[in-house]
Design a protein around this nucleic acid. Structure first.
Lengths: 217, 217
DNA sequence: CACTTGACAGCACAAGTGTTTGCTTGCTAT
DNA sequence: ATAGCAAGCAAACACTTGTGCTGTCAAGTG
């Protein structure tokens, strides 16, 4: 029996063990560590499978050197890889106003990891996350349970997707923003939905959407 | 002569050497590595200074274990803050078949960073990413330019969002999967769209969607 | 001066560890 | 059946590597 990436069950286990061992201890396991913890009968079996893993490019090895097993990606990233995290300030539900980002204790808030592709470090300032509850944003291709990343800003350019607060209605929605002469058009992304027209003094922009994360486990 | 942090020159050198060694090789140096490269006359001198460094909290050591020297700061980040990356195998366009994930050289593919929230390490195996081109998936709340994360699998449960290949039509779409008796229903997420009905032997599942990333800079 | 202490040398021992060799098994193709 | 082969087993072997003495030497210290 093999797994999808061509590794035997045992090799899969060994690989996982190596990761976890290093994660836990900070240095690499010896062959006998693997042997005993994985209850493998002989060191040669471990050596055999390590060679297989090496041939498949899953691990690097320094011949003869004790604890010289390394994972291709663990070397550099351990030192270089910064963690991009933004605070998850809360949940946005249909109609309810957002918490004022300024007033929330950012340091206490839950954090969300953000892939650098979505928000690089220098663009990360004033970015926060909100979990979307309900289907009220579905017309903007944002589903229940999605996490939206917002950059705090009070102005927007035409076409930006923004979190806009309608003062009069005391409600917040995610819409595309268009300034058209004296009025403002808030346009859903779905063409079957009708836009909202209002005046600029009835709109307070709370942030611009810069990313969406969806998990579908 | 001591340096500002209370270390002797030799200790400073050793500490620096340890850092550099790990950065270069990916595993920790043995006492004799330090000895020879730093041209120290005896292993006991190294041991002596390592103990001093340990007492000063500059390094961690695992008694008796080969290459068990660890730097306090390198240990944790490597595991707590791993960089989850999956290969970006290509672009999925309306109707065109996906590249066979098995056949693409994974190691050569571009990588996409994934937030751990979306895919934890053990669930990361066999996950790959595809960039969506065109609006053909808009009914599944997936926009042009989005990146979808797929876990390679050939079966699916009812309600899973899958990348399904229609053999006869030689086309691939993202739909929700429903097995209904003898037929299979591929249901768009948008209720205004019609589902596709077909037989199970006309469908080959290429993967299940486990996440969506959208960037809106 | 005798005594202590930090720093260093040299050396040998005993674990810690990777490798090798020979021997089974179980399965597949000829 | 028979040969071939991947995978596993067990024990022995040999190199690696941490540790533990035993000294040496210079700088303090009373």
């Amino acid at each position: 029996m093999r797994t999808a990436d061509g590794l035997s069950v045992r090799q899969e286990k060994i690989l996982h063990y190596i990761e976890e061992f290093f994660g836990k201890k900070g240095y690499w396991p010896a062959i006998r560590d693997i042997q005993t913890d994985l209850k493998i009968s002989s060191t040669s079996v471990v050596a055999y499978n390590l060679k297989a893993l090496q041939d498949k490019g899953k691990i690097n090895r320094q011949g003869k050197v004790s604890r010289g097993i390394t994972l291709p990606n663990t070397l550099t990233p351990a030192l270089i890889n910064p963690s991009y995290q933004v605070p998850l300030l809360g949940t946005i539900t249909a109609g309810q106003p957002l918490p004022d980002p300024e007033q929330v204790d950012v340091s206490a808030a839950e954090k969300v990891d953000v892939p650098p592709d979505l928000a690089t470090a220098d663009k990360l300032k004033d970015v926060y996350a909100l979990k979307v509850r309900g289907l009220s944003m579905i017309d903007a291709l944002i589903d229940d349970g999605d996490i939206v990343l917002l950059r705090r800003q009070e102005t927007a350019n035409n076409g930006d997707m923004v979190a806009a607060m309608l003062v009069e209605e005391n409600a917040v929605t995610l819409k595309k923003f268009y300034h058209e002469g004296l009025r403002i058009r808030l346009q859903p992304a779905n063409s079957t939905m009708q836009p909202i027209f209002t005046t600029s003094d009835n709109v307070r922009i709370q942030g611009r959407v810069v990313g969406v994360l969806r998990s579908l486990f």
